[in-house]
Design a protein around this nucleic acid. Sequence first.
DNA 1: GTCAAGTTTTGGACTCAGTCCAATTTATTG
DNA 2: CAATAAATTGGACTGAGTCCAAAACTTGAC
Lengths: 140, 140
Amino acid sequence: MFESTKLLRTHGIPVTAQRLAVLRAIREQPHGTAEAIAEEVRSKIGSISKQSIYNTLGSFVEKGLLRRIQPAGSPALYEGRVGDNHHHLICRACGKTVDVDCAVGKKPCLTAANDAGFVIDEAEVIYWGTCPACLVTTTK
Amino acid sequence: MFESTKLLRTHGIPVTAQRLAVLRAIREQPHGTAEAIAEEVRSKIGSISKQSIYNTLGSFVEKGLLRRIQPAGSPALYEGRVGDNHHHLICRACGKTVDVDCAVGKKPCLTAANDAGFVIDEAEVIYWGTCPACLVTTTK
DNA sequence: GTCAAGTTTTGGACTCAGTCCAATTTATTG
DNA sequence: CAATAAATTGGACTGAGTCCAAAACTTGAC
Ligand SMILES: [Mn+2]
Ligand SMILES: [Mn+2]
Ligand SMILES: [Zn+2]
Ligand SMILES: [Zn+2]
């Protein structure tokens, strides 16, 4: 039995071709948009509806199988690396997204100067900058 | 002469009723959406087009008069507090958004564990949690 | 293996936030 | 005040995501 099948079973999620294909697509696409994942899935199983992509990604995020990040000015990205509270570094020019380890590890990794009585569960950090490739292009 | 008029003049921005009204609306609305600001403007000068709202807010952000923040799952928010690199704390339940001072001050306030060769210009931090009011409601 | 019950998938309509565009109006400069 | 450049307008349009009802599945019990 496939690893992914087992993973779904242990989470009590019915096993479907679409869900297995999404799981597979995520492995190929470290930080993919819903659309990119849909394309990847289609290249493997022929077709999938937009709604199934969103259903699947959404429920996987809820179940903790996936993580969703929503950078400003970009559609949401999905990734399989969960549970380690890492952060992201995004190129303003080309959108290239790379993982940045969190020095602290556990969420929330930062303490707010004044928490205004909120109960904080996460400190989301996105580093913005220019990637090596785009640095070359812009300085030319 | 009004303060806002002076501000626009010193930035070489032609003074229009719409731009003055947007500036005024921002003062009433610490972290408002484009739509909220448009409503505030309409209540003062009668009407403004959607496009003018976006033109004005966009160019003010470019000129450094305003700051735009784009939290996951919400339209962009605009604020007049610029130049101090503060962060934000947002309630997952009701969206209430409050300022959090940055301990470091200057951008980028955090150093990435591994920068992958990027030149980082900003570390954007959003704290997510539950505000005092929503804490009461959910524990009930 | 078959069946019933409950889920999932589908496609198509729809919403929301934002952008594009051409025509009209307005601010600035001389 | 007139000329010029810039801003404003409304309306069409886009992209990302959601809503909905019908059809197709997966599962669990027999
Ligand atoms: Mn990641
Ligand atoms: Mn703020
Ligand atoms: Zn780049
Ligand atoms: Zn709240």
